[in-house]
Design a protein around this nucleic acid. Structure first.
Lengths: 89, 89, 89, 89
DNA sequence: CTGGCTAAACAGAACC
DNA sequence: GGTTCTGTTTAGCCAG
């Protein structure tokens, strides 16, 4: 019986191996990133600040959205219909 | 009426503050839990395992059995002996 | 032998039970919070927005710090000494 | 030299962009992994257990045994039968 | 109203 | 040692 215990062993193995393969790739990328930071450091950059810059550039669009949403949000929370509410039911 | 737009701002504030108070309390408890784990660790216990024990006790015995069974099933399907299975007499 | 397997069972049990007790308390608080939200909803408030307000009030001090740090950070990252940098080595 | 303050802004930008590029790639891989889990789930596999299997395969067998042993030890100390222990013939 | 899905909190590990 | 990053767990939301 090629199906011990009721699960398709081959299929299961395939899934597990695909995941493991992808996780390996992911690890490679992570290491690459680490390498770039190391290289930057070798060129005199402060890695910690560099990380912060990258993280900021990532956050900013999101933060901006949130900020925008917040204005409307507060107006609503206070029971004051803000602008752009005319389309609300 | 000091209630612009039909919502009682004071009431809103009251709700927000009640929630914030409760969240503070919740944080205190969380810190207490952390402290207990730290104390246990100081007494030689393995915190990670301790967490696992607590989490296991939370689960219903049946659920635990079932989970374990599926895991063993998968591991066998992959040709990996399940936990403590190979040594069971 | 009151010490099966080399660990002090009573002490272990005590730790586990302290943790479980605290987790129960924590759960009570969580439920209380949920109740407050429900009550607010019963009073006509939008729970989702309420959550956002609470979360914003939590984040704001932190965000402000970060924002402040960021200005200096960017200036440094671009090799432009900003204001208040005169104390930097 | 178009380099205000002693740091090469262009080089800095290059580093930042290389990092951002890699992080994007990494995100793609992460999403791929998520997809595989979803596909496995669609084929009837228990994702949670699947994750556990993958994580177990990552650990060294010895480490796994050891972890298991400590857990059983604790559970016994608390009068709780360890996994699959009571049914082991 | 139950269960799946996504997003946030938490804890653990790694690196500096 | 402490800071950051990763992974796990949890909670809230949504769809069926």
């Amino acid at each position: 019986m090629s199906d011990p215990g009721g699960v398709a062993a081959d299929q299961l193995r395939a899934f597990v191996e695909r995941i493991e393969r992808l996780e390996e790739e992911k690890k490679v990328i992570s290491d690459d990133i680490k390498d770039v930071y190391a290289e930057a450091k070798g060129n005199g950059y402060d890695v910690q600040i560099l990380r912060k810059v990258v993280s900021l550039r990532k956050k900013q669009p999101h933060e901006r959205e949130e900020e925008e949403a917040v204005l409307v949000l507060y107006l609503h929370a206070l029971g004051m219909a803000g602008p752009a509410t005319e389309s609300a039911s």
